[in-house]
Simulated assay, not measured.
Amino acid sequence: MNDDDQAGHGRPAQPLPISHLLSDLRSLRVCVFHPHDGDGAQLTQQLERIGCSVQAFWPPLQSPPHSTDVVFFALLPDKLNAIDDWSADDDSPPTIAVLNYENPTVMEAMLRIDAKAVVTSPIRSFGLLSALVLAREIGRERKKLCKRIARLEEKIGSARKVSEAQDILCGQRRVSKDEAYKIMRDQAMAKRMTVEDIASAIINASDILSSGGGRGSR
Rank of each mutant, 00 (worst) to 15 (best):
R112C: 02
P93R: 02
V30G: 01
L76I: 03
L47A: 02
L75Q: 10
A88P: 00
S63R: 15
A131F: 11
A41G: 00
P122N: 10
P35S: 00
N103Y: 09
C52A: 04
L25N: 09
P122F: 05
F33C: 00
M107F: 11
K79W: 07
D84N: 14
Q45M: 10
I50G: 04
D78N: 09
N81H: 14
D78T: 13
H34T: 00
D89F: 07
S27A: 05
L129T: 15
I96M: 07
V118S: 08
T68C: 04
C52M: 06
I83T: 05
P77F: 04
D91E: 15
A74D: 08
P64E: 01
S63M: 14
S67D: 15
H66K: 13
L22H: 13
A74G: 05
F57N: 06
D89M: 10
L111K: 13
K79E: 02
N103A: 09
M107A: 06
L25Q: 13
W58G: 03
R124H: 14
A82L: 12
D114M: 10
D90H: 13
L80V: 08
V119S: 06
P64F: 02
P94A: 04
D84P: 03
Q55N: 11
T105A: 11
Q45Y: 07
A115G: 10
L80S: 06
D69N: 15
S67E: 15
P94W: 05
D91F: 08
L75R: 11
R112T: 07
D39K: 02
H34E: 00
D90M: 13
L128K: 06
C52W: 04
L21I: 15
P64C: 00
Q42Y: 03
R26I: 05
G51F: 11
P93Q: 11
F57Q: 12
T44H: 01
A117V: 12
L61R: 04
V30A: 01
C52F: 00
E102S: 15
E48P: 13
D91Q: 13
G127Q: 14
F33P: 01
D24P: 00
H66S: 14
S63F: 08
E102I: 15
N100Q: 09
V54H: 10
R124V: 14
A56Q: 11
L43Y: 01
K116N: 08
D37P: 00
F72R: 04
L25A: 11
Q55R: 14
M107D: 07
R112N: 13
T120E: 04
L21W: 13
